[in-house]
Design a protein around this nucleic acid. Structure first.
Lengths: 172, 172
DNA sequence: CGGCGGTATATGAGTCGTCATATACTTACC
DNA sequence: GGTAAGTATATGACGACTCATATACCGCCG
């Protein structure tokens, strides 16, 4: 049910079509949710059937007719209640993190290489996240910065330890 | 397919039953994945059919017979390949974060109250995460600490701004 | 004018995830 | 002897999600 509420949240900010909503979700990961169009369209229809949004068809200057949705008073009420529900930490669900964790059984040179691969991903994402003054965006920025620092620290530690090659290691 | 690989990863560390695996996943969020037993059992069967794990039945001292799985050489190979796949940042999928982001349209007193609710969640989780010397756990710890600091900073900023009540605000 | 790229909606197959429920074995306690 | 609590496996319904595919409207470029 989260996707519907997230869409409702976007529609309270401003009316939009399914396609618009997808753009907004994709460009701002700080919102905490994203989904494919194939999930967004049926979700909007459910919101419409439930009376949480209204629909206006409009000609598009550059494509097929747009279906523009806007939140109704009932939709705003529903959203408010959803936002007020208690917080909880999400169940972890991140294949990249799982790979990173399993990587710890590899040899240092491999680990360093892949840590730096990850580090670069983070650096790119940090660039993309550089703008924006919402609390959610500030949160995302500090988390990315922290993770970047973590990756660098882990790399450095591995490189420092690595000066002991197999031969030296055997003597300790 | 991630769940199977994560389970395989645990089984390479040590043989275990489905129930054991669930305990291990639940107790260490730094591994990056968790799932219900109702997902774990069928997943183990698929791994068994695929020859990635082997099965040994054992009497349990305190319950019905256990089904203990261990990774086969083919399973280890499969795992290695999976771990070597390229990294990517996960699609955001976090209802709590979405609530937090939407909360920014509420009035400061509400926002402070809920930020502190979230802060307390984080503080509890940080306590649970206090042990462990793997890189993945270190990562989790620094991220939780950063997020805690973020929540406190946002609260403080709101409280500082709040000294301007509606009346004072109107005059500026 | 034919095709390409961007805008826009739509659907279906198949998988993954959640939640509820059932069963069975054991120890511990009343 | 009944039952509660912890260990352990299992299944089914339902909804969420991914991925592939189709259609259509537009302007632009060669």
């Amino acid at each position: 049910m989260s996707l519907s509420h997230v869409l409702l949240g976007l529609l309270v900010e401003s009316p939009a079509s399914g396609w618009d909503l997808k753009q907004r979700l994709a460009e701002d990961p700080a919102r905490g949710w994203d989904a494919d169009l194939s999930q967004i369209y049926p979700s909007l229809r459910r919101l419409l059937r439930g009376g949480f949004v209204s629909l206006k068809r409009r000609r598009s200057p550059k494509g097929p007719p747009r279906r523009e949705y806007r939140a109704t008073p009932s939709g705003r009420r529903e959203l408010k209640e959803w936002v007020a529900e208690p917080f909880s930490l999400p169940r972890p669900h991140d294949a990249t993190l799982a790979r990173l964790a399993l990587l710890e059984r590899s040899l240092p040179p491999d680990r360093v290489r892949r840590l730096q691969e990850y580090r670069n991903l983070l650096a790119d994402e940090l660039k993309r996240a550089a703008t924006g003054t919402t609390a959610a965006r500030r949160r995302r920025r500090v988390l990315l910065e922290t993770e970047l620092a973590w990756a660098d620290a882990e790399s450095a530690a591995l490189l420092a330890g690595r000066s002991l090659g197999p031969a030296e290691r055997a003597r300790t």
